[in-house]
């Protein structure tokens, strides 16, 4: 005899449940959690380092950084803030809520204003994994194609803010800024898009202001 058993459960429900728990904890602790996703080499770490240097005089910051291997990014970020932990994922191409939960062990979230999470450089796999973050930022650099959002619509669709990085290289790379904005807005209408350069500082004031506007009122 063959029976049909209805299940109707989300395949990533374990991650979703953990992420929801993290989000509640972050909210109760009053820490603003922002995650960053992009392809490898789009300038996540450089951008974050500069951003943290700017924010650290006024805010208490910590960062988690994911990579398949090496502690290099954590070493770079620890120049800008003292609380940095590297998550080495081994062969896994994305961070998940369980890794975040484990990496936070021993940290007092109440003592933080911002927690930044740098995901593994990958525009595909992180999209389905909720990390409990308040805001997901996707980065696209001026040295990549303007149509990247059209090629990776899922990650752009699940993100809240897009940053176009290395904007100082736009002219040299013949990067069509308008086309990039168009393709971002085509896959994620209404998305907030900012152009930044960690090198020249262009757009950094605006980015900083955007992130500060997310902080819970003191």
């Amino acid at each position: 005899m063959t029976r049909l058993v209805e299940v109707r459960s989300r395949i990533l429900k374990e991650n979703d449940v953990l992420a929801r728990g993290l989000r509640d904890r972050f909210q109760q602790a009053g820490v603003c959690v922002i995650s960053f996703v992009s392809s490898p080499g789009s300038g996540k770490t450089t951008f974050l380092e500069k951003l943290m240097f700017r924010l650290s005089p006024r805010h208490r910051i910590a960062a988690l950084v994911g990579d398949l291997a090496t502690e290099n990014d954590a070493a770079r970020l620890s120049r800008a803030c003292t609380q940095v932990r590297q998550i080495t994922t081994g062969t896994i191409c994305h961070l998940d809520a369980k890794m975040i939960d484990k990496a936070l062990e021993g940290w007092r979230l109440e003592d933080l204003d911002f927690l930044f999470i740098e995901n593994v450089g990958n525009l595909v796999c992180p999209s389905g994994y909720d990390l409990g973050e308040q805001v997901r930022v996707v980065l696209l650099s001026a040295t990549e194609g303007e149509d990247k959002p059209l090629k990776y619509p899922t990650i752009f669709n699940t993100a809240d803010v897009a940053l176009i990085t290395k904007i100082d290289l736009a002219a040299a790379a013949e990067f069509d800024r308008e086309a990039a904005h168009r393709s971002i807005l085509s896959v994620r209408p209404g998305m907030k898009v900012l152009e930044v350069s960690a090198k020249t500082g262009e757009g950094m004031d605006e980015t900083e202001a955007l992130f500060e506007s997310l902080l819970a009122p003191a």
Binding site: R3, L4, V5, E6, R8, S9, R10
Partner: peptide, 12 residues
């Protein structure tokens, strides 16, 4: 957006 295990057919 769904990624869902909908059902199983089980022979017994």
């Amino acid at each position: 957006r769904e990624l869902m295990l909908v059902s199983l057919e089980i022979d017994s």
